[in-house]
Computed example of a mutant assay.
Amino acid sequence: MSQSSNIIIAILAAGASTRMGSPKQLLNWGEKTIINHSISTARNTLAKEVIVVLGANNETVKSHVIDNSVSIVVNKNWKEGLGKSIAHSAEYVLNSYENFDGLLIVLADQPLVTSEYLDDIIKAFCPNKNEIIATLYNQDKVGVPTLFDNAYFNDLAQLSGDEGAKSILKKYMDFVKVLCPDFENLDIDTKAQYEILRNKVSK
């Protein structure tokens, strides 16, 4: 990984996978599990550091992580939703690093996200200008992966609930840049979604 930026990537993987019926972080994706695929994707970018936020089944998922260069953070309050994992990421970075320009939030269950696209986000970011770089979905939906300038860390640290950082994107809309990926930015929540997506990729 070329460390030519001052960006930290946080991979959020704290959910209980209730709709899946088993930890989706450990599903196969190519020759790796989804969690290890996500870590490999993040590590092969311009990011300075990569942290992984676990919660439900954290001991089991952690035992399958093969890259010991990433920092594993456990969100004990994972039941409070995605926002709490983002808050936990921001608090960890604030307490662990002296020098960083921003935090790039990535979801482990979006396996179509590429290292190249994450680098596009990092390259589009101008530090110290209060920028937020977000990703465009279908029907004008904006969300993760999203890169937040370090100016927003106090806001991020206050998040909770399942809405993630949508409230921050709405509050600071004038500072948001939106990128459109060249792939469908899909989440995996159910076994049916997983099979459909995996079949698409394998063709």
Score class of each variant (00 low, 15 high):
Q158E: 15
N138G: 09
D174I: 13
L169D: 07
G83Q: 02
Y172R: 10
T146P: 00
A124L: 04
T146S: 13
P145C: 09
N95F: 00
E116S: 12
G161V: 10
K166E: 15
I168P: 00
G81C: 05
A108Y: 08
C126W: 02
N130S: 14
P111T: 10
L136I: 04
G143C: 05
A157T: 08
L112E: 11
T135Y: 03
I133H: 02
E91F: 01
E163P: 00
A151K: 12
L136H: 05
D120Q: 14
N99H: 14
L82G: 00
F153C: 07
L159T: 06
K79I: 13
A134P: 01
K141S: 10
I86T: 05
S115R: 07
F100C: 06
K76S: 12
L118E: 02
D162F: 06
I132M: 12
I122F: 01
D109Y: 04
N75G: 06
I132N: 04
F100I: 12
E91N: 13
A134L: 09
N138F: 09
L147I: 11
V144K: 01
Y152P: 00
L104S: 04
E91D: 13
Y172A: 08
L159G: 02
F125S: 05
V74D: 08
K76I: 05
W78I: 03
G81N: 06
E98M: 10
K171E: 15
Y97E: 08
S167Y: 02
P145G: 04
K141R: 13
P145Q: 09
N75A: 08
S115K: 08
L103D: 01
T114L: 04
A157N: 06
Q139M: 10
N154Y: 08
L82V: 08
M173K: 15
H88R: 14
S96Y: 04
E91S: 13
N99S: 15
A124V: 04
E80S: 11
F175D: 14
N99T: 14
A134G: 07
E116R: 10
F125P: 00
V113N: 07
E91A: 10
P127T: 14
E163D: 15
F148L: 06
E80A: 09
I86K: 01
G161Q: 10
V93F: 03
E91K: 15
N75M: 07
S160Q: 13
S96M: 10
L94V: 11
D140F: 03
Q110A: 09
V93G: 01
K84R: 15
P145K: 05
L107P: 00
L82Q: 03
S160N: 14
I122A: 02
N128A: 11
L104Q: 05
S160C: 09
A108I: 03
N150Q: 11
K84C: 02
L169G: 06
E163K: 15
K79L: 12
G102V: 06
I121T: 01
